Simulated scan of single mutants.
Amino acid sequence: MFLVNGLEPTKKDLLKLFEGRELLAGRTPFTTAISIDGKVPFWGHHLERLKNSFNFLFKDQDFKELEKKLNLCLKKINESSGTQYLRFTMIENKKSVQLIFQMRELEKNNLTELSLKSIFHPGRVSSLPRNLKYGNYLEAIEEVKKAKEEGFDDCLLLDDEGRACESTIANIFFRKGNRIFTPSLKSPVLDGVTRKVILEILDELGVECEELTPNRAEWENMDEVFLTNSTRGPVNVSKIDTREFESGSDIFRKIRAAYDVRLNSK
């Protein structure tokens, strides 16, 4: 399903999207989510991201107008069944903000572990809000393509000091013993929705979590690594470069179980 402003687009609607430079330049803030039998887990977090992104980029616009368009999309989602992939993208056009909505069946992915290739990457621009997702992924796409040719699933992005920040599509967590670490938002990382949820779960479980952006020596010394994003939830990392890690620890299984409960109850 592809909608513009919550409605089936006409040819004129589609042409309007290209009238400015926004779409071509990647000035297209968005959020990705899933729906399960018509309900969007953690919708409050996704709505917060959209609102914060809107207020940062489109200061002269009224978010209430966008909410009307979002509500039309939510009605379509409510009519769906199964697990769907969702993407909400905003584009400013002639002093108004257009909403592009995409919904398709989420492809089944049986991967329980992922492997990462570490690369130096400039990361997110420091002047932009940490929860802002935007459309320019060209460099990341090309790096992942190279990594897959070498047998990896994704890339671990290192800052200019060689510290681990995130993957191209997910936040990252590390475990050492009974302690969990995740890169600080002061680093060039996304303040991801699932990252927020996992931090809430860790707090409920009484598991200590410290913000740390580890250098190579530090992350190679970790026992376990896992990634988090909205389409997969928490997934173990089997190895980074040649360093192999444990998978499926008791702590990870508790995190995954608590996440699945939330996923199916909100």
Rank of each mutant, 00 (worst) to 15 (best):
I100T: 09
H121R: 04
R256K: 14
P214M: 05
S247M: 03
P129G: 07
E143T: 06
L3N: 03
L158V: 12
S118Q: 08
E218R: 12
E19C: 03
L156F: 05
P234N: 07
S80C: 05
F245G: 04
E224R: 00
D260H: 10
I119E: 06
L74P: 09
G192T: 14
D203L: 08
G177N: 07
L47M: 11
I169F: 09
I180S: 06
G44K: 13
P214Y: 04
E105P: 09
F54S: 01
R21V: 07
L157G: 10
F63P: 12
P129F: 01
K95I: 02
K108H: 08
E220H: 13
A140M: 01
A170S: 14
M1R: 11
L3A: 00
K11C: 05
C209H: 01
H46W: 01
D153Y: 06
E208P: 07
V197M: 04
P129N: 04
L138E: 12
L132N: 12
E200R: 11
K39D: 13
K254W: 06
E65K: 15
T231L: 13
A258S: 15
E224M: 00
K108V: 14
S127Q: 10
N5E: 05
K64E: 03
G6E: 01
F58D: 00
K12T: 14
E220W: 09
V125T: 12
K186C: 00
D223Y: 01
N236I: 05
E65Q: 15
N52H: 05
N110Q: 08
T242F: 14
D241L: 02
I119P: 15
T182G: 12
E92W: 09
P183G: 00
L15W: 09
D250C: 01
E150N: 05
L23A: 10
K39A: 11
D260T: 14
K75E: 13
R256T: 12
E67Y: 05
N52M: 08
K145P: 01
E200Q: 14
A147P: 07
E105D: 08
N55R: 11
E139H: 08
E92M: 03
L128N: 01
E218K: 13
E19N: 06
Q61E: 13
R253M: 13
K39I: 15
K196S: 03
